[in-house]
């Protein structure tokens, strides 16, 4: 996918008087898939700043661009136009190697499908990202133990994923996503395969991460009950942000008054 923007700014331009480095920042981001009559505009000019330590839900109907937004925020895809900054760095300016390093060091992912490696123990699954970064095995294991303890799994860590329940496996996936002090954790419908009580526990765990680690957590969900745990909900429709609980487009405001 090509990017058709010009003259990239070296640093994100300041908007809305915001100061400091955002965990993730989008400037007028457009994302198109396909071409000609098959072209689909997944995002149509999205600007969004997510602060370190913020817990944000992205909601909207199917096909509104929620998952695309998450993929761009994680440097997994390129914007067609506009700029995406992760931990203060312009993703479009980064080499493939730098981008891979960004994904390993700054961004953690938790998906609906449990992507744990079945042949590794819980502890090995969590320490793997650190070991890939060159952290000595002993130190990596120690940090992995801490991350597992933070998600409430401090025993049986030498068992394999299949020995754990679905909720516990998702906890392991979260531990893997937070190990190594990442700036941002991206969670795409992380409770899809879990029952209600287990799902609540997983979301509650995510809700505690910003305060505990300063990680920004971005949760894509269609469930209001999970969104209610967050600090902020951003609503997408047809690839655009239509409302944001942090900056509501409500009655009585210049942009969205009903008079």
């Amino acid at each position: 996918m090509t990017t058709d923007h010009t003259t990239p700014p070296a640093a994100p331009p300041a908007i809305d008087g915001a100061t400091g480095t955002a965990a993730v920042e989008f400037f007028d981001v457009v994302k198109r898939f396909g071409a000609g009559s098959n072209e689909v505009r997944a995002l149509s000019g999205v600007s969004l700043r997510i602060e370190p330590g913020e817990f944000v839900a992205i909601m909207g109907p199917s096909g509104c661009g929620k998952s695309t937004l998450l993929h761009l925020a994680g440097g997994m895809e390129d914007a067609t136009a506009g700029r995406v900054y992760v931990a203060g760095r312009d993703v479009a300016d980064m080499s493939i190697t730098d981008r891979a390093a960004l994904r390993r060091r700054e961004v953690g992912y938790v998906f609906q499908r449990l992507n744990l490696l079945a042949s590794l123990t819980a502890l090995e699954n969590v320490s793997l990202p650190l070991e890939l970064e060159g952290v000595a095995a002993k130190q990596a294991r120690a940090r992995a133990r801490d991350a597992l303890a933070a998600v409430g799994l401090d025993h049986r860590v030498d068992r394999y994923p299949d020995d754990f329940s679905g909720g516990q496996q998702q906890r392991i996936a979260i531990a893997r996503a937070i190990v190594g002090e990442r700036s941002v954790l991206l969670a795409d419908e992380p409770t899809g395969s879990l029952d209600t009580v287990t799902s609540d526990a997983v979301i509650e765990l995510l809700a505690g991460l910003p305060a505990q680690f300063g990680t920004a957590v971005v949760l894509v969900t269609h469930e209001p009950r999970f969104a209610s745990w967050t600090d902020r909900v951003v609503f997408l429709r047809d690839g655009r942000i239509v409302d944001d609980t942090a900056h509501p487009v409500g009655a009585g405001t210049a942009s969205g008054g009903f008079r």
Binding site: P224, R237, D243, P248, V249
Partner: peptide
């Protein structure tokens, strides 16, 4: 949209 934001 507004009602949904307020409810959430």
């Amino acid at each position: 949209t507004h009602q949904r934001t307020v409810l959430l």
